[in-house]
């Protein structure tokens, strides 16, 4: 099939229909509806400079429930994540993994039908080899700290890292554990947050992490520090709320990596228990494979908790294939557990 839906993580295939029309039956409300398809880049064909990742060319989108029908205009501002801009006022491309967000889904309950008029990527643009699947897979994962290696892995596979609390932060196991066990109590309080200058940039620090601000400390004045601190603390409070909501929703797969040999099964279990205080989100713990042991393997420690190894951690030059493998395998195990 040229496309399918992921409704709260469950695959929904289109029913048979006329050419260019795809009909899906699903139930609303749903937490998340994604439109997934193969994708490719015209530039790879050598006949275009278009480097966008293109999946489906969407000409129309409508919902029906009984006799009622709701058409969504292609000009709707609800077309966000995963949709390219409107072209020729008649169509817009998806990438491989587009979100049907609030503005595109009717406020109805019960069984509905979604109809799409769309064309898959033309055959003269062969689908990138697994690119769509890799990006969709990696986009679900969110770092819980240590450093930003997972973000490099996600960008390598064209997945956008989620806007998460640890996207720009470094944290140790002990800091993360303290945060999860306390619900990140006090995060974003100015009295509990420090601001320092490192490498010409303001950085925020607290009991749970240290964080880049990407605000240059030039000139470094008291007024500038106080302003960056105020803004940063507001953002930290927003990101704390988001993290706890994501854990509660279970839609993200959280990742903690550590090169510490002391990061053992007991430490993983404790971290998982702390995470579970806030919701059912699964946790993938990644550590270094012991010498002589194979890397890229994943084991189920318990349902919702998975342990994986890679042979090295190298920021920005990470063992990308191993990361893809462990994320893929962990997803398989987690889906089997969820079923």
């Amino acid at each position: 099939m040229p496309c399918h839906l992921l409704v709260d993580g469950c695959k929904v295939e289109p029913e048979a229909g006329a050419e260019d029309w795809f009909s899906f039956r699903l139930r609303l409300p749903a937490r998340e509806i994604r439109l997934v398809s193969p994708a490719g880049r015209p530039v790879d064909r050598g006949q275009s400079t278009d480097a966008r990742l293109l999946g489906l060319r969407l000409f129309g989108l409508s919902w029906s429930k009984g006799e009622a029908r709701f058409d969504v205009p292609l000009t709707s501002l609800g077309f966000g994540e995963g949709f390219h801009d409107l072209e020729n006022t008649t169509f817009r491309w998806t990438n491989c993994d587009a979100l049907l967000g609030d503005g595109l889904v009717p406020d109805r309950r019960g069984e509905v039908t979604l109809r799409l008029r769309a064309q898959p990527l033309p055959p003269e643009f062969p689908a990138a080899d697994g690119a769509h699947a890799d990006a969709a897979l990696l986009a679900r994962f969110e770092s819980l700290g240590d450093d930003c290696e997972l973000g490099f892995v996600q960008r390598h596979f064209d997945a956008t890292p989620p806007l998460g609390l640890f996207r720009w932060s470094g944290s140790s196991y002990a800091q993360l554990l303290a945060g999860l066990e306390s619900g990140f109590d006090g995060l974003g309080d100015q009295e509990q947050t420090s601001i320092t200058v490192r490498d010409g940039e303001y950085r925020l620090g607290c009991a749970y992490m240290s964080m880049h601000t990407f605000h240059a400390a030039v000139p470094d004045t008291l007024q500038a520090r106080l302003e960056v601190l105020r803004r940063g603390c507001s953002m930290l409070r927003l990101l704390r709320r988001k993290l706890l909501a994501e854990i509660a929703s279970g839609r993200r797969f959280f990742v903690f990596k550590s090169a510490d040999p002391g990061f053992d099964r007991a430490a993983m279990l404790r971290l998982h228990a702390a995470l579970r205080r806030h919701g059912p989100a699964p946790l993938l713990c990644v550590s270094l494979a012991p010498p002589g042991s194979p890397a890229g393997e994943v084991v189920r420690v318990m349902p919702g908790l998975y342990a994986a190894t890679v042979d090295r951690f190298v920021l920005a030059e990470g063992p990308y294939a191993q990361w893809r493998q462990v994320c893929f395998r962990a997803s398989q195990l987690q889906q089997a557990d969820a079923a």
């Binding site: 501002l77 966000g80 994540e81 979100l99 967000g101 609030d102 503005g103 956008t160 989620p162 806007l163 927003l238 709320r241 988001k242 909501a245 994501e246 929703s249």
Partner: peptide
């Protein structure tokens, strides 16, 4: 609703 953060694409998305 923090679930909207990852889908912000236009100024109107923030306002909404």
């Amino acid at each position: 609703d923090t679930a909207a953060l990852d889908g912000l694409r236009r100024v109107a998305d923030i306002l909404a």
